[in-house]
Deep mutational scan, measured.
Amino acid sequence: TLDDSATICRVCQKPGDLVMCNQCEFCFHLDCHLPALQDVPGEEWSCSLCHV
């Protein structure tokens, strides 16, 4: 889900339109996540760090 609060991106440390991982609660810009996300993920989304 998009989170436009004062939360910062885990990768670039900047605020903005972010998606939050449902497991670790880290936030990412779509372009900062590795691999980059093309679209906003669904409600139950886990980042690539949680899939390691």
Rank of each mutant, 00 (worst) to 15 (best):
44 E>M: 12
8 I>F: 14
32 C>Q: 01
4 D>H: 12
38 Q>P: 04
30 L>Y: 11
37 L>Q: 11
3 D>N: 11
33 H>T: 08
31 D>H: 12
45 W>K: 10
19 V>D: 13
50 C>Y: 00
48 S>D: 08
22 N>M: 06
13 Q>F: 13
20 M>E: 06
29 H>I: 00
31 D>W: 00
2 L>E: 13
32 C>R: 02
24 C>S: 00
49 L>R: 15
42 G>H: 14
47 C>H: 02
9 C>L: 00
6 A>R: 07
5 S>N: 04
1 T>M: 05
15 P>Q: 03
26 F>M: 11
50 C>S: 04
11 V>N: 10
22 N>A: 08
4 D>F: 09
49 L>N: 15
35 P>W: 01
4 D>Q: 07
49 L>K: 15
17 D>C: 10
24 C>K: 01
29 H>G: 01
43 E>T: 06
13 Q>M: 13
19 V>E: 03
39 D>A: 09
22 N>L: 03
4 D>W: 12
13 Q>Y: 11
24 C>M: 00
26 F>I: 01
20 M>F: 09
10 R>T: 12
3 D>Y: 07
25 E>P: 02
25 E>V: 03
31 D>Y: 07
3 D>R: 07
46 S>N: 13
48 S>Y: 11
6 A>H: 06
39 D>Y: 09
42 G>N: 15
13 Q>D: 15
33 H>R: 11
45 W>N: 05
47 C>R: 03
16 G>F: 03
46 S>T: 11
41 P>S: 05
41 P>F: 04
8 I>Q: 14
29 H>E: 00
37 L>Y: 07
36 A>F: 07
42 G>Q: 12
2 L>G: 02
11 V>Y: 03
42 G>Y: 04
19 V>N: 03
46 S>Q: 14
42 G>I: 15
51 H>L: 12
48 S>N: 10
51 H>A: 15
6 A>D: 07
17 D>K: 12
28 F>N: 01
46 S>D: 05
29 H>P: 00
22 N>G: 07
16 G>C: 00
45 W>R: 10
13 Q>H: 14
17 D>I: 04
21 C>I: 01
9 C>F: 02
30 L>F: 02
1 T>L: 04
51 H>W: 05
45 W>C: 07
36 A>W: 03
33 H>K: 08
36 A>Y: 03
25 E>G: 07
30 L>R: 12
11 V>F: 05
42 G>V: 11
50 C>G: 07
21 C>T: 00
44 E>C: 14
12 C>Q: 03
41 P>Y: 02
25 E>H: 02
4 D>E: 10
6 A>C: 00
31 D>N: 15
8 I>N: 12
50 C>R: 08
35 P>K: 09
14 K>L: 03
33 H>E: 15
16 G>M: 03
50 C>W: 03
24 C>L: 00
36 A>S: 14
43 E>M: 12
13 Q>L: 11
24 C>W: 00
41 P>I: 06
2 L>Q: 13
29 H>V: 00
11 V>I: 12
49 L>Q: 15
23 Q>V: 08
42 G>T: 15
51 H>N: 03
48 S>G: 11
9 C>V: 01
18 L>E: 05
43 E>S: 12
39 D>G: 08
19 V>Q: 05
28 F>D: 03
32 C>F: 00
21 C>W: 00
7 T>H: 10
3 D>V: 03
18 L>N: 02
47 C>A: 04
4 D>P: 10
29 H>C: 02
19 V>H: 14
1 T>K: 14
10 R>A: 06
22 N>T: 09
45 W>I: 08
52 V>D: 07
29 H>R: 01
9 C>M: 02
24 C>G: 03
48 S>I: 01
6 A>I: 01
37 L>E: 03
30 L>H: 09
40 V>M: 08
8 I>A: 11
24 C>H: 00
10 R>I: 01
43 E>A: 13
50 C>P: 13
48 S>T: 08
48 S>A: 10
43 E>D: 14
43 E>C: 10
10 R>N: 14
20 M>D: 02
52 V>G: 06
34 L>K: 14
38 Q>K: 09
34 L>F: 13
25 E>Y: 12
17 D>A: 02
46 S>L: 13
46 S>M: 14
5 S>H: 15
48 S>K: 09
42 G>R: 11
